[in-house]
């Protein structure tokens, strides 16, 4: 379950993230001529500097206001939240939809015989992809769509409620039985990262790490030049998602667990060696 979901329905848990060490000052002493003891020309002399002590940034749990808290009731409660870039909308349901596995479907023809809930959602005009995992349904819109999320939300909520009142499964047992084991998914995803993604983003000093696999859901972090980068969302959506799904079509949810605000200077990180 992604951390933001916990914040909305259960409140976040406190965590401590090690702070990156402060970068060394870039002050350079002007010298007449480099000597053997002096650093190479253009390199700062750091011999007199004391390494700053790395500090820890602590995160306190965020407490929900009362109106955000969801009480269990007979009526299924669904909350919708449009993601920051307006590309997707997450529908959070107050009871589990699909535990242990996830399913991502790129169109109505893929949903047939796999997920009756997804079929109902694709029947709503404008819905492009459906991801079902845990307590959430995440939708994106088709490129041709002209409707806003506000116009679509109510229909999605109604479809989820109607499905949960029926006896139909969220995802067919045949689909779940055919999913490869975690070890196989881990191996195949690792290979994509190693062979395709990391070589591709190496020129930006970026690196993607597979943190864990849970069922057919994967959790990654983006490091180096990708951490805190303003283009990381596009890299994730257009590069990483596409490569993963092409090579491992059974994959469900792909979560980026990177704290893009961490570090002393996340949006203006140090230049790679040799460019300073």
């Amino acid at each position: 379950m992604p951390s933001w979901f916990k914040k909305v329905f259960t409140g976040g848990a406190g965590k401590a993230v090690p702070e990156q060490e402060e970068p060394l000052s870039s002050d350079v002493s002007i010298v007449d001529a480099p000597s053997q003891e002096s650093p190479a020309l253009g390199q700062p002399d750091t011999s007199d500097y004391e390494q700053p002590k790395a500090r820890e940034v602590v995160y306190a749990p965020v407490i929900m206001s009362e109106d955000e808290q969801s009480a269990y009731s007979e009526e299924v409660r669904v909350k919708a939240r449009v993601e920051g870039d307006y590309q997707s909308c997450v529908f959070m349901v107050d009871r589990p939809l699909l535990k242990g596995s996830s399913v991502w479907l790129p169109g109505t023809e893929w949903a047939k015989d796999v997920s009756p809930l997804a079929e109902a959602l694709f029947a709503i005009e404008g819905v492009g992809t459906v991801l079902i995992h845990d307590f959430t349904v995440t939708l994106t819109l088709t490129q041709e769509n002209r409707r806003s999320w506000e116009e679509i939300m109510k229909g999605v909520g109604a479809a989820i409620r109607a499905h949960l009142k029926s006896d139909d499964p969220v995802v067919s047992q045949e689909f779940l039985d055919a999913l490869p084991p975690e070890d196989e998914i881990r191996s195949r995803v690792s290979k994509v990262i190693e062979m395709e993604i990391n070589p591709g983003i190496a020129s930006h000093s970026g690196v993607v790490t597979l943190e864990r696999v849970d069922g057919n859901s994967v959790y990654i972090t983006m490091g180096g030049g990708c951490q805190g980068c303003a283009a990381s969302a596009i890299t994730l959506r257009q590069g990483i998602h596409t490569a993963f799904r092409k090579s491992v079509p059974e994959l469900g949810a792909i979560y980026d667990e990177t704290d893009h605000t961490a570090g002393t200077n996340p949006y203006f990180s140090e230049l790679p060696a040799g460019m300073a």
């Binding site: 820890e56 602590v58 995160y59 306190a60 965020v62 407490i63 919708a80 939240r81």
Partner: peptide
């Protein structure tokens, strides 16, 4: 306004106090 819960700080730790406005969630 953001409400934060209990936390302890020492001489080696700082508390993150920057939170952007929470995304609005609608009941649908």
């Amino acid at each position: 306004t953001i409400h934060l819960g209990a936390v302890s700080l020492d001489d080696n730790s700082d508390l993150n106090i920057w939170y952007e406005r929470p995304a609005t969630a609608f009941d649908v």
